[in-house]
Design a binder for these strands. Structure first.
Length: 166
DNA sequence: ATCGTCATATGAA
DNA sequence: TTCATATGACGAT
């Protein structure tokens, strides 16, 4: 029951090519466009299931890149995370487009008000940025915090949603 | 405004 | 058990 990826598929957008990783359970990771183009690989012939998932992923990514909430998400394979991490990721999922929360708010929402720092750790371990909107989590006082894909991406994504940093 | 320090939870080695 | 961390609060500067 783990997230062994069986297919890597590209998502071409006007800001670069994302790479979606699929396991037998669903989408298990999403990479930001690398500086250098990478050749998409495919370990196994694509099943209809995976093509369908990829269609949903592609639509979701494109919606998010123009500031809209995706209509539908593919199944997400979060089996790489611990219980705590999955709890954090699930909680972040509820953050609506255009709004932000703090690490402390997430910590309280999952019933561990003191685990603020651990929430940061879970954000960093989020395998599916964008669809799991960790870019909408800021530090206290409106500070930017960090971002695994690079702070430039975090700024850009927030700007797309109408949130401008001072 | 920035910096150092401390408290604290979690995860990886 | 030890170390690192995408935090936060507080006090000193």
């Amino acid at each position: 029951m783990n997230a062994a990826p069986i297919a890597l598929l590209p998502i071409v957008t006007n800001v670069g090519t994302f790479t979606a990783h699929y396991s037998t359970q669903g989408l298990c990771a999403l990479d930001f466009p690398p500086a250098v183009k990478r050749k998409p690989t495919r370990a196994v012939p694509l099943t209809k299931t995976i093509r369908d998932w990829h269609q949903l992923t592609t639509e979701a990514v494109k919606a998010l890149l123009v500031g809209r909430t995706p209509r539908e998400l593919p199944p997400l394979d979060l089996s790489s995370g611990t219980d705590f991490q999955r709890r954090v990721w699930e909680e972040m999922t509820w953050t609506p487009c255009g709004e932000t929360r703090s690490y402390a708010e997430i910590a309280q929402a999952i019933g561990r008000p003191k685990a603020v720092r651990a929430v940061g750790g879970a954000c960093g371990a989020n395998p599916i940025p964008l669809l799991i909107p960790c870019h909408r989590v800021l530090a206290a006082g409106g500070k930017l915090g960090g971002f695994s894909g690079g702070l430039e991406w975090k700024r850009k994504l927030l700007a797309i949603e109408g949130i401008v940093m001072c």
